[in-house]
Design a binder for these strands. Sequence first.
DNA 1: TACTATAGTTTCCTATTAGAAACTATTATT
DNA 2: AATAATAGTTTCTAATAGGAAACTATAGTA
Lengths: 110, 110
Amino acid sequence: MLQQNEKLPACPVEMTLMLMGDKWKVLIVRDLLTGTKRFGELKKSLNGISQKVLTQHLRIMEENGLVSRKVYAQIPPKVEYSLTDVGVSLKNVHDAMCQWGEQYKQQFGC
Amino acid sequence: MLQQNEKLPACPVEMTLMLMGDKWKVLIVRDLLTGTKRFGELKKSLNGISQKVLTQHLRIMEENGLVSRKVYAQIPPKVEYSLTDVGVSLKNVHDAMCQWGEQYKQQFGC
DNA sequence: TACTATAGTTTCCTATTAGAAACTATTATT
DNA sequence: AATAATAGTTTCTAATAGGAAACTATAGTA
């Protein structure tokens, strides 16, 4: 998992990789692009992720300003995650990946 | 490093992640988008990558049809790497990442 | 004869990540 | 009193990636 405590790289692509160069983070963004989700929903949707890893990623993405976290004072707990504006602006990257993946599958795929 | 022997995921983003969800592969694409490069040039440009890891990634990217490898029958050896058409089509993803990274740096940056 | 250059391969070791499972807290419900 | 629900945290272990260094091959050159 990529952290943010190294100094910023000059190359903007490396900058993006520092914050998103990670399978789980990309998939978290994918899921949150369709709207706010609760912790449990995310966990179910991200097939196979463990609670520990999911919280770790969410915490770092929050620190990096990509994700915001809203805690409801309820029992049992309810916590909602959504993308910040900066997070939403990853839609372009997501869409490009989505398009490319589809195209690749058409050529080599299934 | 992500391999290609698992079955294809339905989600096109996950498909892309299977082939590119890796720091080194993204940077190899970045470097090859500016044109054909020799092994040694790539190694120098990808600051800190070891020979072993570079060859491993290049082999897998070749298998996946992203990169082509041209060996010259010379001594000392000369091997050139370039992107295939499929590899070049990653330019959109690369550009989106590049743009996003720049924007992020402007907001939170330096 | 020894050295250089290039593109690797191989082996061994370490660091990072992920995964699994158990544990916590709190309230309502049975 | 025990159980269920939710969102975690903690601990321990296993898998993976990556790094370093040594080794290979071959022709030309000093």
